[in-house]
Design a binder for these strands. Structure first.
Lengths: 196, 196
DNA sequence: ATCAAAAGAATGAATGTTCATTCCTGTCGT
DNA sequence: ACGACAGGAATGAACATTCATTCTTTTGAT
């Protein structure tokens, strides 16, 4: 009786729990969000959460990895093999920015997780792997002279941290990124890392 | 029997409590650090903490403001009224970097505090005030054409978030900032914000 | 200078609360 | 009737905070 369509629409309590957790944790912080509240908001009993997740830490870490995956997926959107390195760089920059600005909860949650005691070794390793496409893009760019010969960790400042900083300011209302400002910011980052 | 020198050296439990709190919270996170542990590590009874601070939140917020003050003090070190805007900008950039790199606990604690539910209205207002000298430096720089006509919030990305990102990478061992790289990074930030 | 008494500081066991997690029941689809 | 799934009360550990008591320092009268 249960078609796959109905299943997706109604149940999948696992998904509901994850979404609720994301929303609550991003708003209230990790500590201030008891499992009982997650259960209540998800319309589920406390015990039910433990059918899907071993414990709170697991729940949080699985959510974190899901979001990282989704985020990096977005970052790579519309990248074509034929694009020049510069085009790829600019697209990724804008993709990141767009994702953060339209996914505030996700950003806040991931940022909170970033400096928290939940960052275990396995999680770090899993994240490391996800960045492989970027490491590759960087290696190619350096090899053909599109990127300066700087350490990748330095280049990443201008395509990751800078973008994040702009997104935060935009979301907090402290800065309104017009198309012009956005283009300026992208240009600054590209100038910072491009080859001579 | 008790000279003022001995007093300063031995007592001032308030200071001991604050220092211990800084160290523990930066390592273990806000919520993984019970007051009982702070007391133990500080060599003080649990109840004693409450002679000096109303509660845990107050303790954390007072520590936060102390550190912010100290941090901004360092950022302004060696700035002379006669310095050009460019000189000032470069000095502040390096001062920030140096402070973070040599004060890892402080950096971690402040960063953790930054996205946490302890960020109350009063704290934000107090921090806002501390930034006045920078706002002033920016206003002067824009007026005389040293800075581009960008929103201050945009300029601050290149003297605050970028520096923080570099310091974090340096501390995590992912990046070794040589003198050359440091000079490059400063130059990139200055190019990003300088007037035409 | 001495000492009793008051003031101030520190202690740590006790309290009450808040959780994460468990476990016993009930329900529903087959 | 069975088993997987869900419910939610019950459990117990962890924790922030309190407070009656003890220890230390200061005061001031002689």
């Amino acid at each position: 009786m249960t078609t796959s369509i109905e299943q997706d629409k109604v149940t999948d309590k696992r998904t509901v729990i994850l979404q609720t957790t994301l929303q609550l944790l991003s708003e209230r912080g990790f500590h201030n969000t008891p499992m009982s509240l997650i259960a209540e908001e998800a319309g589920v009993a406390a015990g039910t959460i433990y059918r899907y997740f071993d414990n709170k830490e697991t729940l949080i870490n699985e959510l974190f990895l899901d979001l990282k995956r989704e985020m990096l997926q977005h970052a790579m959107a519309r990248i074509e093999p034929g694009d020049t390195t510069e085009e790829q760089f600019r697209k990724v920059w804008r993709n990141f920015f767009h994702y953060y600005v339209t996914h505030e909860d996700e950003m806040r949650f991931v940022e909170q997780h970033h400096n928290s005691p939940f960052q275990s070794g396995d999680v770090l390793a899993a994240v490391e792997e996800m960045y492989a496409p970027f490491a590759n893009m960087f290696a190619v760019g350096v090899a053909d002279g599109s990127f300066r010969e700087l350490p990748m960790e330095m280049t990443s400042v201008y395509i990751y941290d800078v973008v994040l900083a702009f997104a935060k300011r935009q979301l907090s209302g402290k800065l309104k990124m017009t198309d012009e400002l956005l283009e300026e910011a992208v240009q600054i980052s590209w100038d910072a890392v491009k080859g001579t």
